[in-house]
């Protein structure tokens, strides 16, 4: 069955957005990512204009992350305190990032910087997560018997002022740490035009040293607020949110997020990390192919990245 999308001005088989929503919602519930880095290009591939694809994806992420946050909150896997600090940083970072994009557009090389940032960030994060989780899966028994060794970075972070304990995550950090790293992800997310979940998850795992299951719930919590803001701004300034498309996507994604959260609880932290790393690396390879293979069309409609 086909439905006409009033803002995208196109017709789509309902099974496509529902199926995409289900698949990306599953990833969202499993790994705590919004899935924008997957969903937006897929929607464009199915004929949705890029501006509408990005804006509507934010709207459906609101539903998927509400569903996912709720599922993780029920089992105590959301660190609200940490989430709020990260949100604060992300908000400031987002403002800086948007100004950065304006500057790059004025300089005329925005697309190059955006694409390179995408490839580098995804590549680095994917490769690091892949090898780290592989190693930690192998050495699990050895590490369990040894006390955790504190790194130089860890010592430096401990020396910062405003130390506070995050009970749910079981870690103590300076309040500045999540704000600054949240800000860093916010800048990159704004530059890349994505929610930044796939960057926020490694920051929480490797820098904030939070347990993987709390990372997933907390990441979804902060993604929820980011996407509420983005949805409103996109609807208000660009008129590019397609309500019907969002409803079709969220029918799939809300269920997918719940199923993902249930599956996630059955997997170990390292298993989750390595699967996410493989997905991130596959997306990186796809982007590299897109950049190097001759495109079939040399002109495209404006908007999006």
């Amino acid at each position: 069955m086909y439905l006409y999308l009033p803002v995208a001005l196109t017709s789509i088989n309902v099974l496509i957005p529902v199926g995409l929503g289900l698949a990306v919602g599953l990833l969202s519930g499993l790994f705590g990512v919004g899935g924008g880095f997957l969903m937006t290009p897929l929607l464009i591939m199915f004929g949705i204009p890029s501006t509408v694809a990005a804006a509507t994806d934010s709207n459906q992420i609101v539903a998927a992350s509400t569903s996912g946050t709720y599922a993780h909150w029920k089992v105590g896997n959301v660190d609200f305190k940490m989430g709020l600090y990260l949100l604060l940083g992300g908000f400031i970072g987002g403002l800086i990032g948007v100004q950065g994009i304006k500057l790059l557009n004025a300089m005329g090389n925005a697309d190059f910087v955006i694409k390179m940032t995408y490839v580098l960030m995804l590549g680095i994060v994917g490769i690091y997560m892949f090898f780290e989780s592989l190693q930690s899966m192998k050495k699990k028994d050895v590490e369990a018997s040894k006390p955790a060794k504190e790194s130089v970075v860890g010592k430096f972070l401990k020396s910062l002022p405003l130390q506070t304990h995050f009970e749910k995550s079981g870690v103590t950090h300076s309040a500045l740490v999540p704000v600054v790293f949240g800000g860093f992800v916010g800048v990159l997310a704004a530059v890349m035009g994505v929610g930044g979940g796939f960057l926020m998850v490694p920051v929480m795992v490797y820098i904030l040293r939070m347990p993987m299951h709390v990372v997933v719930g907390t990441s979804l919590f902060q993604i929820l607020f980011n996407c509420i803001e983005v949805t409103f701004l996109q609807a208000y300034t660009n008129h590019s949110v397609d309500f019907i498309l969002a409803v079709l996507l969220l029918i799939g994604s809300t269920f997918g997020a719940q199923v993902g959260a249930v599956f996630g609880r059955k997997l170990k932290g390292d298993q989750l990390k390595i699967i996410l790393a493989v997905i991130v690396l596959l997306v990186t390879v796809k982007i590299v192919f897109d950049l190097t293979l001759s495109p079939s069309l040399l002109l495209s409609m404006g908007g999006g990245h």
């Binding site: 709207n59 459906q60 609101v62 539903a63 998927a64 992350s65 509400t66 569903s67 996912g68 946050t69 709720y70 599922a71 029920k74 509420i228 949805t231 409103f232 701004l233 996109q234 609807a235 208000y236 300034t237 008129h239 949110v241 309500f243 969002a246 409803v247 969220l250 029918i251 809300t254 269920f255 997020a257 719940q258 249930v262």
Partner: peptide, 23 residues
């Protein structure tokens, strides 16, 4: 546009909670 944006957000929040409750 503002009302449309708010309705879109409320619908998404409602759907997310609704499915959470069903589960």
């Amino acid at each position: 546009a503002a009302v449309y944006g708010i309705i879109s957000i409320i619908a998404a929040l409602g759907a997310g909670f609704g499915v959470g409750l069903i589960f």
